[in-house]
């Protein structure tokens, strides 16, 4: 009797969250899907006609799509490489005993809390600016020609900025994982004559594998939709050199008013993200049982 009562109460407490998320998922996504099959331009209201897969055809066949797709992948992979490798090294370093551990930890984590528009503008102006940026000052003092990062290597520059923001995240998670490493097991291995390298390969790496996977998957979800950093630094340019899929959809729908085409692009972005999401969900689902 009591359980039946509490079950009903539990359902009632659960329903607002479920209903809201259900609406949030179905209504806008359903609308995007619907728009993606229409010829729909905001400059020509009332002219909407059903065009089937035409929007998808044109979205995929524009040259900008393929460069946006490859830019998206390069951006994700580039940032992942830097943050995962850098994060492992940094976590191993910070896990050693040294003076002022707490302070260094705080310094290293800080970039994660800086809002994307601030970090992008600071890097763009104070560091990468070819006239007044710090990199330009350093180049000049060494007698070199200053390099205009954002016009000659726009994508690499954005990768650097985004990597700076995400390195703390990777480091923090890997450091947390390292600190849960079984010290006794380490000591036992050392007593049995295992060298530093052997202990690293056979004890540390297997222990870190899961956390590394989590870092990769979560970062991928966020990195697929990098937007503010591109908007305030390069506006996707020069040309489409630093346009990713998110930025392309934004440009097509809100700058060119092509709602149909933008929606088709949105659906493609959702499909891409879902492929990653399936892996991430499996990982976390497994953890839920453990």
């Amino acid at each position: 009797m009591a359980t039946a009562h509490s079950r009903t109460a539990a359902r009632l407490m659960l329903s607002p969250a479920v209903i809201l998320l259900l609406l949030w998922m179905i209504v806008p996504l359903g609308m995007t899907l619907y728009f993606s099959f229409l010829r729909y331009n905001l400059l020509m209201p009332g002219m909407e006609t059903f065009v089937g897969f035409e929007n998808y055809y044109y979205f995929i066949n524009q040259p900008a799509f393929w460069s946006a797709l490859s830019n998206t992948l390069i951006l994700v992979l580039g940032v992942l490489c830097i943050t995962v490798v850098g994060g492992i090294l940094l976590a191993l370093l910070l896990d050693q005993p040294f003076w002022g551990q707490g302070i260094v930890r705080v310094l290293v984590i800080a970039p994660f809390f800086v809002m994307p528009t601030v970090s992008a503008l600071v890097w763009k102006n104070m560091f990468m600016n070819p006239v007044n940026g710090i990199f330009a000052h350093i180049a000049k003092s060494l007698g070199l020609q200053p390099f205009d990062f954002l016009s000659h290597a726009p994508l690499a520059s954005i990768i650097l900025i985004v990597a700076w923001q995400w390195l703390p995240f990777a480091t923090l998670i890997l450091l947390t994982a390292l600190q849960s490493l079984d010290r006794e097991q380490q000591e036992a291995a050392e007593m049995d004559g295992a060298g530093w390298m052997q202990r690293f390969v056979y004890l540390t790496v297997p222990h870190l594998t899961r956390s590394i996977t989590v870092v990769i998957l979560i970062q991928t979800i966020f990195l697929l939709s990098v937007f503010a950093e591109i908007l305030v630094t390069t506006n996707g340019g020069p040309g489409t050199a630093s346009t990713n899929l998110t930025y392309l959809v934004y440009a097509q729908s809100l700058l060119n008013y092509d709602v149909g085409g933008g929606s088709a692009g949105g659906i493609i972005a959702v499909i891409l993200a879902n492929i990653v999401a399936i892996f991430l969900m499996r990982m976390i689902g497994k953890n839920l049982e453990a």
């Binding site: 934004y250 709602v259 949105g266």
Partner: peptide, 20 residues
């Protein structure tokens, strides 16, 4: 898991309808 999956939806996928 389903709640988590809603978080995986890239924002740009619903940009147009939200804006409208």
């Amino acid at each position: 898991m389903w709640m988590l999956s809603t978080k995986m939806m890239p924002a740009v996928g619903v940009l147009v309808p939200m804006y409208l």
